[in-house]
Amino acid sequence: MKTILNGKQLSITIDRLCHQLIENHLQFEQTVLIGLQPRGIFLSDRIYNTLRKLLPDAKIQYGKLDITFYRDDFNKGKGLHVPNETSIEFSIENKKVILIDDVLYTGRTIRSALDAMLDFGRPASVELLTLIDRRFSRQLPIQPDYTGRTIDAFISQKVKVLWEERDGKDEVILVD
């Protein structure tokens, strides 16, 4: 087991990602945030709350998207996934969407998320923000626009993101 980001580093990284978002999206007038269920939500909650502190006057729209019904491994003998809540209480038509997930690995989740999201409308553009990018392990041509930390890891290794709200402390670890 190896620590990739400790609590302090995680908090700095999230702050930095927020500033990068502001750099490109200013007051978020045409931009919406969508966090991916179930694990991306912890990150997107943090990002949303940090942005609200940084931009107290901005009205930032924030939704949650579950991709269970869009997975490409249903009926492929991988077991059944239980769906989580989707709540997108606004139109994404012609908006700039920022998809938020914790770990980018094969890219298949993001592929599903793009399909799921397009059923809500046709956004002007879509960007991807991930906390951890496991590069060289992609199975689809998908790359992040904002990255917390890029890492190299073996297929046998797992990246675990721990959150204060759920696990009692903030930390990103690599498990063998």
Binding site: F69, Y70, R71, A116, D119, F120
Partner: peptide, 9 residues
């Protein structure tokens, strides 16, 4: 949703 359909099955 606007598109009341998923591709699961």
């Amino acid at each position: 949703r606007p598109i009341k359909k998923v591709p699961t099955l």
